[in-house]
């Protein structure tokens, strides 16, 4: 949801390995069953690095393990719509509201709990502000309004349905 970006970003680890915070360079590294939670957004990974690029602007980089890719889940502003994804790495820029799924990225959109769209690509960029998905190298979901330019960079645009009354 768009309101997620106004929430605190909470990162937790199970503590099997020590976490390290460089308070001069503002870099935090947590290892071992790490979770990132911000409103309805949730990322699970083996290793997470958080950088404060500017006061209040946080960039998260999550990495899966050889056994388990990173897992992403976030509710969308539409009724009962959820985005789920898995990939080797995730880069999340909370200020720009952009998530990049890098390496064997798989993304699903669920409506009322059922998968309505699914895609697999080398890199998938989910722009929450523009509500678009960009696929690089790989197959965009069937039936989606997508154009595939020569460089293999597919671009899929979600066509927003009529927003119900009273919702901005």
């Amino acid at each position: 949801e768009r309101a997620d970006r106004l929430q605190p970003m909470v990162v937790e680890s199970d503590g099997r390995q020590a976490a390290s915070v460089d308070l001069n360079r503002k870099i935090t590294v947590l290892n071992g069953n790490v979770s990132i939670t911000q409103g309805t957004l949730r990322i699970l990974a083996e290793r997470v690095e958080i950088r404060e690029e500017a006061p209040g602007r946080f960039m998260a980089q999550a990495r899966g393990s050889s056994l388990q890719p990173t897992r992403f889940r976030q509710k969308r502003d539409r009724q009962d719509e959820v985005v789920e994804a898995e990939s080797n790495r995730v880069e999340y820029d909370s200020a720009a509201e952009r998530v990049r799924f890098i390496g064997d990225a798989k993304l699903r959109v669920l409506r009322n709990g059922k998968v309505s769209d699914e895609a697999h690509a080398a890199v998938i960029v989910y722009d929450q502000k523009a509500d678009t998905l960009v696929f690089e190298g790989g197959s965009p979901p069937a039936g989606a309004a997508a154009s595939t330019p020569a460089n293999g960079r597919a671009r899929l645009v979600f066509v927003p349905r009529q927003a119900p009354e009273g919702q901005p």
Binding site: M9, V11, E12, I50, P55
Partner: peptide, 15 residues
């Protein structure tokens, strides 16, 4: 260095 289960909370500028 944080030992054991650790928790970090980051507050975005707009929050």
């Amino acid at each position: 260095t944080l030992t054991g289960p650790a928790r970090a909370r980051f507050l975005p500028a707009q929050a």
